[in-house]
Write a protein that binds this DNA or RNA. Sequence first.
DNA 1: CCAATAGTGTCTATCAGACAGTATCGA
DNA 2: TCGATACTGTCTGATAGACACTATTGG
Lengths: 240, 240
Amino acid sequence: MTSSNYDPRSFPPFAVTVDIVVLTVTSRLEVLVIERGRDPFAGWWALPGGFVLPDESIDAAAERELLEETGLTSRKLAGVHLEQLGTFGAVDRDPRMRVVSVAYLALSPVQAEPSGGTDAAAAYWVGVDEAAAAPLAFDHHEVLDAAVGRARAKLEYTTLATTLAGPDFTLGELQHVYEAVWDQKLDRANFRRKVLATKGFVVPTGERRTGKEGGAPGAVYRAGIGRVMAPPLMRGEVES
Amino acid sequence: MTSSNYDPRSFPPFAVTVDIVVLTVTSRLEVLVIERGRDPFAGWWALPGGFVLPDESIDAAAERELLEETGLTSRKLAGVHLEQLGTFGAVDRDPRMRVVSVAYLALSPVQAEPSGGTDAAAAYWVGVDEAAAAPLAFDHHEVLDAAVGRARAKLEYTTLATTLAGPDFTLGELQHVYEAVWDQKLDRANFRRKVLATKGFVVPTGERRTGKEGGAPGAVYRAGIGRVMAPPLMRGEVES
DNA sequence: CCAATAGTGTCTATCAGACAGTATCGA
DNA sequence: TCGATACTGTCTGATAGACACTATTGG
């Protein structure tokens, strides 16, 4: 850094935004996208996000945008995992001006009807493959790739899948989360063994529940207090 | 986001900086700190860094600062690992103005004599424990903690230790890198077995070299093309 | 010889992967 | 009965951890 740049009265001005990759699992891994209502990229799909305000932290801005764009109540927000993903600051990533965007990854168990926010013409849940194949505004392809990669990696050595599975879940439903995120079938018996042997992963609620497609009713669990697994869930490598 | 904030002519202005946590291993894990030459925090230790310029990407700013502050040549920079660590954007993290800082983690094999840059009164290599116990400017304790945690975690499932061990190294030297970063003794025989069994981790150069403390000369290796290990180096958990 | 490092070999407990088999539900 | 899921049990190959042992250097 040079002395002139160190002067607070002559700093180079930037705009700072947050973009949020909200992932959820239904029958597949899905991401929340908005259809932009104005230029640039009017009519294109984009990740929800917006400017960081002068008097809020970046984390607070991410929480605020998550609430605004998803229509989640702050009560439901407690069940959503939100973490910083990375910062994207290429010079020309926004055609209007110099913008630095801090991307966040959100893992949501609920399929809240997205509200669309003020500027968005509409908001949808779309499969991540579908989003990856579609045109996306700004550098949001890069952001989405990073988010899916992060989610895939974190399921291996953390208990975050319980967040995607919902407040409570059967082991079959939990396994389905892994299979949707990793796009890979798992052995049921071995999955049970590993999950139940990992202390703090899941806690039985005592209830039983039958899934939508029939079959025997399974025991219902909720997330335990554990956050990391050592060793990770699978010995082999998960294809990225 | 609101419509008024979406207007490029009325965005909330931020300053964006990069801070770099440069780690290296000698007999211990060390971090490069500068002694600040001006307020705020004049005389305090801080991480090297500076403002992102209007016409450079954030990654480019990190590379530039790394060169300026360490005195490394761009030739030597090729052997240094540099990755984005995270972004710190608390409202009051800089007393002068609203500053968002993108932190980077650098892993360097060389103990270059730090140049100190333009503003720094001096620059030193200090043990990470020493730095953690000392007063640091801004939120640099938080940044340092994140960097050390990231480095510890990445050694487990990547081959990044080869970067810290230098362009070439004996297996004893490579093991020493792990022991310094993790602050934990490893079994030599098991370490050898795992490293040599991991394809792409190390490549023998054919040379032999005797260390500073005598002993039998060891085979010299250099980094292989592999970047990730699956499964990770150790079965148990590394204390964070 | 001694201290220190390099390198090899072996035993064992653990555990992921594979897979068989039984049980329980809805249709 | 059939299709689907839930759940239990067993075998095996891979391997991390522990540790014993020999070899080679400098002092």
